[in-house]
Simulated scan of single mutants.
Amino acid sequence: MLKSPIKVMIIEDDETAIKIYEKFTHKIDGFQVVATTSTGKQALELINVFTPDLILLDVFLPDIKGTDLLWEIRKQLRSVDVILITAANDVDTVSEAIRGGAFSYLMKPIMIDKFLDTLEKYKETRLALLNLTTVEQEDVNSFFRMNSREEHVVDMEKAGGLPKGIDKHTLKKVRQSMKEMKDSINAEEFAKILGASHSTVRRYLEYLVANDEMEVEILYGTIGRPERRYLKK
């Protein structure tokens, strides 16, 4: 357990987005939002006042590109970690984020489940580093996210480790169909495409979500239960 909360700064020019990130960051134990700002200039002034542990950084700021700000932050505070949250999907920006040492890169529109999962993984990594004095290669692989969970799941499946109710042939068909999807889809829509029952399709989709192969977007309407829409990663 962390001795003190992880201090978070949010750098984002959309006030609504700031409120959403702040709200959901506080839903996870061990995080505290200490500052928010909408400009790079103010961010550089605030980092030495609040000395955050983690920065949630947008790329499109009014006065400076987020990746350029990332390098400026590195000059002033090398110990801070950064997660980029942005609509930028060009290879140059992603490459620059990797070179700048970003912990993760989340693309808008943000899936809340993915947002929360990324913060949880960050907390786990931070805690592990605090508790270790030396590391093994397996630890390094975990920190740098080399051997992905999906690869591990595939290995387990080859060994016959599928849970009850999941057939490997149907699972292969579901995976293949999802590869052809460009937009999110709910279980009812996918059931019509696959020619299977709603409950069966829902079971397979939730299995893929649990294995980190798909994301879930929860849409809250004015009437009825929230809608779960599935999107391939």
Rank of each mutant, 00 (worst) to 15 (best):
I10T: 10
I11Y: 07
E12Y: 05
D13E: 07
D13H: 04
D14M: 08
D14C: 12
E15P: 11
E15K: 14
E15M: 14
E15A: 15
E15Q: 14
T16S: 15
T16V: 15
A17F: 10
A17P: 07
I18H: 06
K19Y: 13
K19L: 14
K19V: 12
I20C: 07
I20S: 07
E22G: 09
E22H: 11
E22K: 09
K23C: 04
K23N: 04
F24T: 00
F24M: 00
T25S: 03
T25H: 01
H26D: 05
K27N: 08
I28E: 02
D29N: 13
D29E: 15
G30F: 04
G30A: 04
G30C: 03
F31Q: 01
Q32P: 10
Q32I: 12
Q32L: 15
Q32W: 10
V33L: 04
V33W: 01
V33I: 06
V34Q: 06
V34T: 07
T36H: 09
T36A: 11
S38R: 15
T39A: 11
T39K: 09
K41C: 14
Q42Y: 15
Q42T: 13
A43K: 09
A43I: 08
A43H: 11
L44W: 03
E45N: 11
E45Q: 12
E45K: 11
L46D: 00
L46F: 01
L46Y: 00
I47H: 00
I47C: 02
N48K: 03
N48W: 00
N48Y: 01
V49M: 13
V49R: 13
F50A: 10
P52L: 00
D53C: 03
D53I: 03
L54T: 01
L54V: 01
I55F: 10
I55T: 06
I55Y: 08
L56G: 02
D58N: 09
D58R: 04
D58K: 06
V59Y: 02
F60H: 15
F60D: 13
F60M: 13
F60V: 13
L61T: 02
L61D: 01
L61C: 03
P62T: 09
D63S: 11
I64R: 07
G66H: 05
G66K: 04
T67F: 11
D68W: 06
D68P: 10
D68E: 13
L69Q: 04
W71G: 07
W71Y: 14
E72H: 06
E72Y: 04
E72K: 08
I73E: 00
R74Q: 05
K75C: 08
K75M: 08
K75Y: 06
L77E: 09
L77C: 08
R78P: 09
R78T: 13
S79C: 08
S79L: 10
V80W: 02
V80C: 04
V80E: 02
V82C: 05
V82E: 05
I83A: 03
I83L: 05
I83K: 02
